[in-house]
Write a protein that binds this DNA or RNA. Structure first.
Length: 526
RNA sequence: CGCGGGGUGGAGCAGUCCGGUAGCUCGUUGGGCUCAUAACCCAAAGGUCAAGGGUUCAAAUCCCUUCCCCGCAACCA
């Protein structure tokens, strides 16, 4: 692989970010950072979807312009991603001039090619919602479910995209490329939906929706979400604006999206690209949802959690623990659950008790028995060394699992290595070896093995917990950035002799969480 | 017969595609260690892998049937 381009779905900015938004960005960030560690040029795109009736309405309710409204909410997203150390390469907003140009270009090209045509649209329009409803959206009495009023039959001229023309080609593509949609069971779902795919409406009358990009040469119509939002993946990588970037990174290697919008990405978007004769993405990964205390997060249930609030409630200064938890709460693709209790238990067990304590106990012994010195004789070789073999195996497993978009399994491998090192210490009992002159060297070698395994761990786990990993690396006596360390350089024996630790340098990298997000929102200091 | 996901020891989850002694974390009980963040290590108790049937030398895993839970309207990833 010579490059890696990953894009998240862009978030609709009609409300502030919640933990579900964060889940997708964290997953993408972990994968992105991993590819960077492999020395592969990588690009990570995320951003916001800012047009449409809902934003128009939300803005007017607040009495501000849609653009001001978007600026405000997009700002909150950007701030949140900074808080979570989301290392995106570019944050794209669909209200950018550059993007509007791309959208209009695509729309125009498709009209010219005959893939977009004008037709009349017969729909049921709810004046309360200010939008069309499909028949299956209506309640049993044929009323709008939210307004309990009968929608009116309205005929409107709209532009349509000839989706039906590409059905077979998409089917064939999905069948011919097993990894195209992940998890694979979702591919069947898409093939099913594809059976009754019809042409889709790609514009709205300006009278019903004004907040959007006008159709080229037809100001009475505004481009609807599909072409507007999905095209961000092209704009974001320099299509029509930065050819060098575009040539280097297109097509998208990974579309990281929620399971609810799989259809739009694997059918609509693919068809649009086919119609534009643009190469198709490699993989579309559909992740599950984060439920809260086992129920779906929803505003009506009042259980929507802002990710930053969790950090605040537990007094966390860095996002690492929550990043780690979300990536390990369930197999990627399934729904995962968040609860304060599970969060606390998981990170206490893995990050504090196992990983943090392992580093702490081994460095403490190094300080206690050898004044923090790694002597040249203590350096071990990989041959006939179980811990070295396991470290290398873990590295391979991490790479394999990341290639399959399975961050859960990759993390599990890393924690297994930590467990093994903890067991190894207990078996070798360096505290006993330290007491006798004859076993001093053996003691030093045991500690070296453990610290070297921990150096592997710090590099491998860096994508999940970048701050803690950096801290680990520093305590192991390095003054460089763990983010700059390449996996290809991760070989046994990298821990160099010399004085690497002192009594003052050894401190816990992750403290156990003992506070709890007490029932309702416990306001934190700020 | 609408579509999809799920049902694995007390809790939360792997394992199911590519059948071969049922695994992890937490919790419980007993023991060990004393280097460490009341941590770490060992052991034990606890499961008819929703139910029934089938294929097979062998099924949590493949096939069929049944039951139960959750999404598929909005807010929303």
């Amino acid at each position: 692989m010579e490059k890696f381009y990953i894009a998240t779905a862009i978030d609709y900015v009609n409300g502030p970010p919640h933990i579900g938004h964060a889940y997708e960005k964290i997953a993408s960030d972990v994968i992105f950072r991993h590819y960077e560690q492999r020395g592969i040029p990588a690009f990570f795109l995320t951003g916001s979807d800012e047009h449409g009736i809902k934003i128009q309405k939300a803005a007017s309710e607040k009495g501000i312009s849609p653009q001001d409204f978007c600026d405000d909410i997009a700002g909150k997203f950007i701030k949140e991603w900074k808080l979570f150390d989301i290392k995106y390469s570019r944050y794209i907003r669909t209200t950018e001039a550059e993007h509007k140009r791309v959208v209009r270009h695509i729309f125009k090209t498709l009209i010219e090619r005959g893939d977009i045509y004008k037709a009349s649209y017969n729909g049921l329009y709810c004046t309360g919602c200010e939008c069309f409803l499909s028949e299956r959206e209506l309640d049993d009495d044929g009323n709008c479910p939210s307004h309990k009023t009968k929608p009116q039959e309205v005929r409107e001229e709209n532009y349509f995209f000839r989706l039906s023309k590409y059905k077979e080609r998409i089917q064939e593509h999905i069948k011919a490329n097993p990894g195209f949609i992940l998890p694979d069971y979702r591919a069947n779902e898409v093939l099913n939906q594809l059976k009754d795919a019809e042409d889709i409406s790609v514009s709205r009358s300006r009278n019903s929706v004004s907040w959007g990009i006008p159709v080229p040469d037809d100001d009475s119509q505004v481009i609807y979400v599909w072409i507007d939002a999905l095209s961000n993946y092209l704009t974001g990588i320099g299509y029509l604006s930065n050819n060098e970037l575009y040539e280097k990174f297109w097509p998208t290697d990974c579309h990281m999206i929620g399971k609810d919008i799989l259809k739009f990405h694997s059918i609509y978007w693919i068809a649009i690209l086919m119609a534009m004769e643009i190469p198709l993405p490699k993989t579309i990964v559909a992740h599950g949802w984060i439920t809260i205390d086992q129920s779906k997060m929803s505003k009506s249930l009042g259980n929507v959690i802002a990710p930053g609030d969790i950090l605040g409630a537990f007094g966390l200064e860095v996002p690492d623990a929550l990043r780690y938890f979300l990536m390990t709460t369930t197999t990627f693709g399934n729904d995962g659950n968040y609860s304060d209790e599970e969060f606390k238990n998981k990170v206490n067990a893995d990050l504090a008790n196992n990983l943090g304590n392992l580093l702490n106990r081994s460095l403490s012994m190094l300080v206690k028995y050898f004044d923090g010195n790694v002597s040249p004789e203590a350096v071990t070789v990989a041959e006939n060394n179980n811990l070295a073999a396991l470290s290398d195996k873990t590295k391979r497993e991490v790479i394999e699992n990341m290639d399959k978009y399975q961050p859960y399994q990759a993390a599990e491998s890393i924690i297994n290595l930590v467990d093994s090192a903890n067991r190894y210490i207990n078996e070798q009992a360096p505290w006993t070896l330290a007491k006798n002159e004859e076993t001093q060297l053996q003691c030093a070698q045991v500690l070296y093995n453990v610290l070297e395994a921990l150096r592997y761990v710090s590099v491998l786990i860096y994508p999940y917990i970048p701050n803690i990993a950096q801290n680990m690396r520093e305590q192991l006596g390095f003054d460089d950035r763990v983010s700059d360390f390449m996996l290809s350089d991760l070989q046994w024996g990298g821990l160099k002799p010399g004085r690497i630790a002192s009594k003052d340098s050894v401190k816990p990298v992750f403290l156990r969480l003992d506070s709890e997000l007490a029932g309702d929102k416990k306001k934190n200091a700020n």
